[in-house]
Design a binder for these strands. Structure first.
Lengths: 168, 168
DNA sequence: CTTCGTGCAAAACCTTTGCATTAAA
DNA sequence: TTTAATGCAAAGGTTTTGCACGAAG
């Protein structure tokens, strides 16, 4: 049983880089320059991204030495294994990654008009999830919830358009 | 506003094939032999599948005339557009489809050990989803929730293995 | 030194598309 | 008879892999 909680009892005071180092050491993997660049870059700010966006953004930072595409993919996989990133959805065939470390658990509202992702957190949701799982004797590791729809801004824009049409 | 409810007020008494015919007619599309084979085959029983499994299963039914791979993909897209199928997850790069017609709304527990998908329904969940969306002025179209973890059977198997190890 | 990681190019893989042919309506 | 749909083959686009070289421990 104890190993099942180990993922959740990591020291949250560690920086992402330190956390990643810890993971790498535990697997006898090496902290290379490329992995260092990537973990620092990815956790510099909180946002959602896909592999291509990451590679472009990295290339834009001329100060950074470039990291090859295969290495980016390999490192993304390691960060997911380490529990530091998670894939929240597939957008047009590309996996969209989200921070899963140093940031509170959350889910997303996804606007189908503008593509925006709005984060929210609900304790109640976790409670229901656990209750349902318990009914089935299922042990929860995590969950992924995306609510599809239209955001406030796009709804307003639509209403404006409709009002205009009404007047014609 | 009225158009926003139209998707939910379709006549549920229609068979999947009839429902699909209705959709096709509304778009001036034709009810071809291939589309008939596919809609009948897919809705013959309720389960989750990916394009490849569907093609194999169809090929196994020697009685059925075969449908080409591109046509299968095209028809799956149409059934999704018609609101009769939905993609619940990506499994190893392949889109996993689930019935979204003639079957009550539901979400899934996904066992990471055996890959099983367990369905459940929760009114409370929909309530929370709507409350959160309302807080953000977001209009909900649908949602996708997957709870990852380990199912009862795989937990038992694991416990058996552990007990054995303990005795050594 | 030994082993692991990187970069390059090529491959793998699911899904989509162009086009000539076939079949709905 | 007109227009949409199919099947084939080939292309698309993301992600993965084989392998020789380079770097970490």
């Amino acid at each position: 049983m104890s190993e099942d909680f180990s993922l959740h009892t990591v020291d949250v005071a560690l920086t992402p880089r330190q956390r990643f180092e810890e993971y790498l050491q535990s697997r006898s993997k090496r902290l290379t320059e490329q992995r260092r660049i990537l973990v620092d870059f990815i956790f510099k700010r909180h946002d959602h991204f896909d592999a291509d966006e990451l590679i472009s953004a990295l290339a834009a930072e001329s100060s950074q030495r470039k990291v090859s595409r295969p290495t980016v993919y390999r490192t993304l996989g390691e960060l997911v294994e380490a529990g530091m990133l998670r894939i929240i959805m597939e957008n047009e065939g590309r996996a969209v990654y989200d921070h899963d470390y140093g940031y509170p658990a959350h889910d997303h509202l996804h606007c189908g008009e503008c593509g925006k992702l709005i984060e929210f957190h609900s304790e109640e949701l976790a409670r229901i999830r656990d209750a349902v799982a318990a009914e089935h004797g299922f042990r929860v590791a995590s969950h992924r919830l995306i609510v599809e729809g239209t955001c406030k801004e796009c709804l307003s824009a639509k209403r404006r358009r409709n009002r205009k049409l009404d007047r014609i």
